[in-house]
Nucleic acid binder design. Structure first.
Lengths: 236, 236
DNA sequence: CAGATTATGTCAGCCCCTGACATTCGGCAA
DNA sequence: TTGCCGAATGTCAGGGGCTGACATAATCTG
């Protein structure tokens, strides 16, 4: 571990299909740290959990913790990071005929669904990620760190969109603008989700995302006074 | 100063038009802190400037610094916060007939222009804010803090939009969605601006913002392959 | 098995930030 | 003016995040 471990992005299975003991142990402690941190955060809150606690819960020195994660934020966001990677993969696999906006929408829905079906509960599952999401919104520093991660993810989305449609993202602003809109739409949906009383699970999140997408057009067009305008009314 | 000073939002001139010595001194040290911090940040960078340096540059204890600002980030973002307040004011003053999206666009353009004309240079001027913006994008923790501020500002925008159009922001997602889209559009423009070599001043920023707005429709609609589609091509 | 890599532990230390308490300063009325 | 009250500041102690440096122990390679 010369520099910081940059999060194991599913090591390519080429070259050596036996990862070796060293590599396995690293992955192991990393997972253990995420697990322990996750548990502590959820039980006592993010701010009231110290890095020392996390480290000693895994029988590891504090210094070692910081060799795996750049800071306390990172270990909290680690679970979400995996989900985001999967979303990008989904986006890459969308058929080229699909309109860009639709490809984004389909990818995000599919990734939530797939992750939800993969392992509905237990550690590292979707529900863990959802609990995390709620916790993040309760902690200002985590909100900040999360937003930063999200915007970096958006850069990736810009790349993928540009490749997909064969345009140059430097000259053509459309990929950038669309990625930005998409990102903010997702965040709105997340906020709505965390604002709900009942957790509602992955399907609830999907429903919220869809609703937000459906309101994109109406929000951009015309005035809103007229209640019978766009079917945007879903009063209780 | 019982709790933290919550940033003097232009004290209402009612009740006593002479703010009193105490109040004046407070404002004074606050400004001095922002000034000193600003200078130090720009000359040595954000991370390499300690709070002690800032405090002693104003002949004030470190503890006092933290009674004015919740953290080091806040003093760096203080200048921008003023600009954002002015934007909100502009938005409130837009005529009700204007379409929501247009009101947002007009407000942001007007606020940049007005602030640019107010005091083109010197401390606390627009150019200071622009320098700050560039610095922020160079510093990951500042990016995070800035994004958090921006999203809180968005909540305000949601409120104003909802009032304007007479809708309930809880039931009707349109204000939320539009505010989110607007926020991400602005951030894209800021990023483009900081990516440029030549600073280009407030007018350059306005131009970029307008360009981003103009690409909103084309980005959301249809495919992009066809180069003659929406006039979205401005190749060099 | 020996040497090269690499992960980990230990330690010292800087810096951010906070609570508690004492002190000083501005505002205000007798 | 004087004296009091509340508010702003200073000082001190301390916790917690994070890093560099160095030694040690574990893995890998031949």
């Amino acid at each position: 571990m010369a520099a910081r471990t940059p999060r194991p992005v599913r090591p390519p299975e080429d070259l050596c299909r036996a990862p070796g003991l060293r590599e396995r142990k690293k992955q192991q402690t990393r997972d253990a740290l995420v697990q322990a941190a996750h548990g502590l955060f959820l039980s006592q809150g993010f701010a009231r959990t110290t890095v020392d606690e996390i480290a000693s819960a895994v029988d590891v020195s504090q210094r070692t913790f910081f060799r795996y994660f750049a800071n306390k934020d990172e270990v909290a966001l680690a679970v979400l990071a995996d989900a985001e990677d999967y979303f990008i993969e989904c986006l890459r696999n969308r058929p080229a005929e699909e309109l860009p906006l639709q490809a984004l929408r389909a990818s995000i829905v599919k990734s939530w669904r797939d992750l939800g079906n993969a392992q509905p509960s237990g550690p590292g599952s979707i529900n863990s990620a959802l609990e995390l999401l709620r916790m993040i919104e309760d902690s200002p520093p985590l909100i900040a760190a999360h937003l930063r991660r999200v915007t970096e993810q958006e850069r990736l989305v810009v790349q993928v969109l540009a490749e997909r449609e064969g345009v140059d993202p430097v000259q053509d602003l459309r990929p950038t603008v669309l990625a930005a809109v998409f990102g903010s739409l997702l965040r709105s949906a997340h906020l709505s989700w965390t604002a709900e009383q009942e957790p509602a699970g992955p399907e609830g999140m999907v429903a919220l995302i869809e609703r937000h997408f459906d309101h994109l057009g109406p929000a951009l067009a015309g005035h809103w006074h007229d209640p019978a305008q766009d079917g945007a009314q879903d009063q209780a």
